[in-house]
Structure formats: structure tokens, C-alpha cells
Design a protein around this nucleic acid. Structure first.
Lengths: 350, 350
DNA sequence: TTATAATGTGCAATCGATTGCATAGGTTGA
DNA sequence: TCAACCTATGCAATCGATTGCACATTATAA
């Protein structure tokens, strides 16, 4: 298949009877004033009638600006990334940029390969949703001077900018919600310790509990998946006999908790209340509908893209950190403790 | 921020003491034989030590091949597109291609703008998941000679290649499942009539019913969303008093049906069985777990990308149409009719 | 009127890689 | 020994747009 070749500067120049450089200037809003008004008009008219679009590839070659941004996701199939991506694409589009999306997985060496590939495409910057706490990919980009913004997760060393949810605050409102319902024996299923979200939420949980003079048991999940939530949930419930509530580090882990409860013949929320994190699609539909901490993923993506664009424009920018406010969404998986007591938790526990 | 400039052919040439053209040939597997063995070795060695990567932009400018494929999605946030995208990315990567993803919405004029934007980036082809039955974007691409493959949805005029699920068959297995459970009063919530999936599944439903000598009422949803499923579901249930099952044109609509049942104090599956379509993530988790027709979206994406790559290679290809086999996934939202009768449907309906 | 400044255009190099053509050696055969 | 032929390499144009510099023309000031 052969594309109909689009118009070039040269053709317009020939038709207008001027040099290509004049055409180039006439069509660049920043340089239009260098060109006589009548010529500019004529050229603009011609360009319009020929449906001229500058060849972005040629422009990129000359100027080094590709107007492409690489986006690395750890797992496209994870529903939280869809709105992030959507927000990124939206924000980039306003400046004529477009994202190249890569489903890079969690494996560092594969990620390197993908980053190399993106660099070959001459992306101007990277948005990473993949970082672990000490990320080599980030180090690599910093070394090469490639602008990077982290989204959703962040690094501990603040080498680059990031846009994240306030993880500690998220845990605080979750714990406050539970205590206000009378819960005191609250456990936590933490995310992997090599992710900022895993660590910060765990710390946030501990701090929030401390504010109420409480201390709750914690079990760590290996990864943020439903399956990986099952084992730690079992362990948690078995160890802490008097537990009345569990806060999970994200919704998928919360689903794992529900699986564990089911397995152990415990009811949610009658025996144990459960709180998730993210408010991903469909968690309002499960049984019981999940009480969770909502994160504005779309806004997060938008902000991350905006930040990156800003950094592309600036010569040098201090890395900044944007923290979004989470919001508690109360649904059916949490319930007042009074009810728990009368609902006869002990019997069902043997 | 400034990038450390990567190595160029010229630098390697200088170091190797040969001309750039020799370096170019030495590094191109197809042309390596034109170059003396020792020189080729030396150049390859040098290239490796400098971590040389050809500047794709320059190559594109010269050869016209960008190795980028544009992907137009109607709605990134819809969970079915994640695996499609993932499959596309995977298949493209094997040939060194990468996707540029655009969340183009359903609005035709916006879609045009996005396509223009992609053309400016010199994408070599397009994968559209957006098409409506008579799609102007397709017409536009065909006119410009841009290779296009449709995925998930197709056109009625077979102007371009497509990869879709066998929609009729999907409805057949859904209806067969229900009839085997004893259902005879089965309704259908159809998708929008400007999508192939909407129309074909509706037809498939009618045909499947006819095979059993049945005829079922149908209501059409305006769009494939949970919200848009609510109203037609209400209407359907109100009109067809003796309905015992509903087949929805996709999972989101099925969720709308569940919402409607809930609202009307009907139970699923005890009062009414519900079947969805797509088997999108998490529908196994809702209450009741959704019986649905599974489509291999990932494979669909992979095949579509493969098809496009094949067409890029060929001079001229007849448009082909790849139809994938769907599979019924039986879960908790469907139940034998006998149980329905004894479960006392009439009372709860008053 | 002449020197000076301002304005509008053109020239040509450049970004980095590719490729048809030319050519310098070297080989072969008669 | 010389023509005919290979082989390996270099030369230079090219893709399309951008941009510093130079030049020509006109406007302004003295």
C-alpha cells in the first residue's frame, strides 16, 4: 500500500514563488512577523488549500523535539492504569504531544529494553508508573538527562518529580472511619515493601492507629494482586483472634481478604469490616460493596503529564512532588462494632 | 534539561577511519556482506562500545518508515480495551514497532483530528477499535491509502481488514445455555445500532432463539455502559412479565440489568438469570458472579497487530476478516428454570 | 543627498541515516 | 602483460524542515 504523498514546504514555496525558508517562517506563528503581510497571507492560503501539515519527523530531526512522551506501565490490564493513561493522554494532547504506551511489566531488565526502545523513538520524556523504591530505570534516565515524572508510585530519593496520592492521609481517613464505628482491633494487609505505596500506607496505618492510642497487626503481601492478598489475610486473621476490621493497601488485596473471610466462614461486614484503597471500577458491585479510599487516578495522570510538559519547557527544574487528596467512599463492607458484638462473632469463630 | 547526545554514524565512522556509508552498511545485516569482514567487525565492536542506536527519526525521514502504529480507542477506561491494547503492543514489539495510543472518544470530528495528528507523526498504519457501522474515519484512511485494521468492531462494507469475535456464535452459546437450563422467556438488551457488535449480537440473539422456535423481546441501549443498560432493562422487564432470563450485549449492560433487578426487588439468578458478553475483569467477583461469553481480547489485539504488520509488508492485500471463537463462562448469574419456578417468582413480582 | 537603520528574502548548512553511482585496487584468465 | 571483472569503499544527493547569516531594498535621519 502506498500513501498519497502529503504537501511539503518546497511545493508551497514553488507555488508561492518564494524560498522554502520564507514559507517556513510564514507558517510559524512565532516568526510570521518577519515576513511581509501579503506574502504570509498567500502562503497561509496555499498551505490551507494543500492541507499542508509539517512533517513532524523532519522537524524532529532538525530540532530534536519529537513531541512524544513514553509511558511505562507495570500492567496495562490493571484497571487503575486506564484512567491514569486517559488523563495523561488528555493533558498531552493539549500541547500537541502524544504518549507512546508500553506495558513493561515489573521486571527491571525488560523495562530497560523498553526504555531503550523509547529513546530510539526520541521520546522527549518519560512517565513511569512502574517504579519501585530504588529504581534503576530512574537512575538510568537521570544519568542520561531524560526528563521523568513518576505517577502513582514515587521514589524515596527525590531525584525526579512525582504525582501521587497522599497515602498516609488515605490510611488516616480509613482508620478514622473504622474507629468512629467503634473498631479498635484493626489489622493491615500491606503492599510489597519495594513500592512506595506499600511502605507509605503501612506507615500511614501505624501512625493513624497511634493517634488513637492503638497498634494493629500487619501482614505484607508480595504483590498487589487478589491472589497475593489471600495468604497474609489468612495469617492476620488467625493470629489476631479479636480482629474486627482489616485495612488493605489496595482494592485487589481487599478482594483477597474477602476471599480469606469466605474461606474461613466469616462474614463481611458482620464479622469483620474491610476497607480497600483505589476505588477501582466495579468494587461497588461486589458483595458486599467495598468501602475504599478513592484516588483520582485520572487527575493524577493529567497532573503528571502537565508536570512533565512544564519540565520540558524549563531549562532546569527542581523536582517537585504533587500530592493529591484521597477521599473515603463508604459502602457496605464496613459496619459499626456494636453490630458486630451482637451479631455473635464468637460462635462463628468456634 | 539536556540530553547527553547519543553516538552517531559519523562518530563511529571517524573512530573506525571509514566513511559513514561503510558504517551504515556494516551495521545493516542485509548489507553487511558488502563490507570487508575485518572492517565490519571493527565497526560492530565500536558501535557496541558506544552503545550506538540508529536515530530512528533520521531513518524515518529517509526511508519513510516510522515503525509507529496508531491505535484509536473509543474509551480507554473501558476495561475490555486494556487486554486488546496489551496484545497489540506485544505483537508490534516483536517487529520493532510501537503503538501510539489515542483515547479518541465516539465523536467523529474529534476522531478526525486525532487521525490527522497521528498522520503528522507519520504512523505507518492504524488499528481502530472505534468504528461505527459506516465509518467516515475508515473512508478517510482508505482514501489516503493508510493501512487500517479494525479490532473488536467491524464495518459492514469490508473495505479493510478486521479481527472480531464471532458475535452471532457468542449469542448462540448464550441462548443455548439458557434453554438447556429450561428458560424460554428470554430477553435481550442490545448494544447501539451503529456498532457492528450491537447489530450482530442482536441478530445472533434472534437467530439463536429462532432455532429453538422462540422469539424474545429486545430493548436497545444507547451506549455500551452500565448506566445506559438500566433504562432498557427496566423497560424489558416491565413489558415482558414472564421473563426468566436476559442476555445482554456486553458485560457493562449486564451490570445495568443487575442494577435494574436490584431496583425492582428481583433477585438474580433466582428470579431472572443474566448473561453478559466479554468476560471483562472482575465480573467474576460481583454478586452474583456473572455468567458471560468470553472473548479473547488479548489474542484479538495480537492478531490485529499481526495482520497490520503483514499488510505493511505486502504491496497490496485483499482485506481479510479474522473471526475468533468465543467461549461461554458459566458462573452464578444463571440458574435452571425449575429452581425459578419453585423459588416463587410470582410472589416477589406481585 | 548621503549615511544609517530597518525590513524582507534568499542562501546554504544542518539534523542523521540511506543508497545509487563512481572509483581505486586487486584478481583472474588468456 | 593487459583486458575484463570483482570487491570494498567513498562520494554526494536525498528525505523535509529550520535558522544564522548575508544581501537587497526601502525607509529614516541628518
Amino acid at each position: 500500500m502506498k500513501l498519497k504523498a502529503p504537501a511539503t514546504l518546497k511545493q508551497i514555496a514553488a507555488l508561492a514563488g518564494v524560498h522554502t525558508s520564507t514559507v517556513s517562517r510564514a507558517l510559524d506563528p512565532e516568526k510570521r512577523h518577519l515576513v511581509a503581510e501579503d506574502v504570509a497571507q498567500r502562503v497561509a492560503e496555499l498551505a490551507r488549500s494543500l492541507a499542508y501539515r509539517p512533517n513532524r519527523v523532519a522537524t524532529t530531526l532538525k530540532t530534536g523535539r519529537s513531541r512524544l512522551i513514553g509511558v511505562l506501565l507495570p500492567d496495562i490490564a490493571n484497571p487503575v492504569f486506564a484512567p491514569i493513561l486517559s488523563g495523561i493522554a488528555e493533558a498531552l494532547a493539549t500541547d500537541g504531544y502524544a504518549p507512546i504506551v508500553v506495558d513493561a511489566g515489573n521486571d527491571a531488565s525488560r523495562q530497560f529494553a523498553f526504555v531503550e526502545n523509547l529513546l530510539v523513538q526520541r521520546v522527549e520524556g518519560l512517565i513511569l508508573a512502574t517504579v519501585s523504591s530504588e529504581d534503576d530505570v530512574v537512575a538510568h534516565c537521570v544519568r542520561r538527562g531524560l526528563p521523568v515524572v513518576l505517577v502513582n508510585r514515587s521514589e524515596f530519593r527525590n531525584r525526579v518529580s512525582s504525582v501521587v496520592s497522599d497515602d498516609e492521609r488515605g490510611m488516616l481517613i480509613a482508620v478514622d472511619h473504622l474507629t468512629s464505628l467503634g473498631h479498635r482491633q484493626i489489622g493491615h494487609i500491606a503492599g510489597p515493601r519495594n513500592t512506595s505505596t506499600g511502605v507509605l500506607r503501612k506507615e500511614g496505618f501505624a501512625k493513624a492507629m497511634a493517634r488513637h492510642g492503638l497498634k494493629g497487626p500487619t501482614e505484607e503481601a508480595e504483590r498487589f494482586t487478589r491472589d497475593c492478598g489471600l495468604a497474609p489475610a489468612r495469617a492476620l486473621i488467625r493470629k489476631a483472634k479479636r480482629l474486627t476490621a482489616v485495612v488493605a493497601a489496595n482494592d485487589l488485596l481487599a478482594l483477597g481478604v474477602l476471599d480469606a473471610l469466605h474461606e474461613m466462614n466469616l462474614r463481611c461486614p458482620d464479622d469483620i469490616s474491610v476497607v480497600g484503597h483505589n476505588d477501582m471500577p466495579l468494587v461497588d458491585l461486589i458483595s458486599p460493596p467495598l468501602t475504599t479510599v478513592r484516588i483520582e487516578h485520572r487527575a493524577m495522570g493529567r497532573e503528571a503529564a502537565g508536570l512533565l510538559l512544564k519540565e520540558l519547557g524549563a531549562r532546569k527544574t527542581a523536582s517537585s512532588r504533587l500530592v493529591l487528596e484521597p477521599q473515603l467512599i463508604v459502602r457496605g463492607s464496613t459496619k459499626a462494632i456494636a453490630a458486630v458484638a451482637t451479631a455473635g462473632r464468637q460462635p462463628s469463630r468456634v
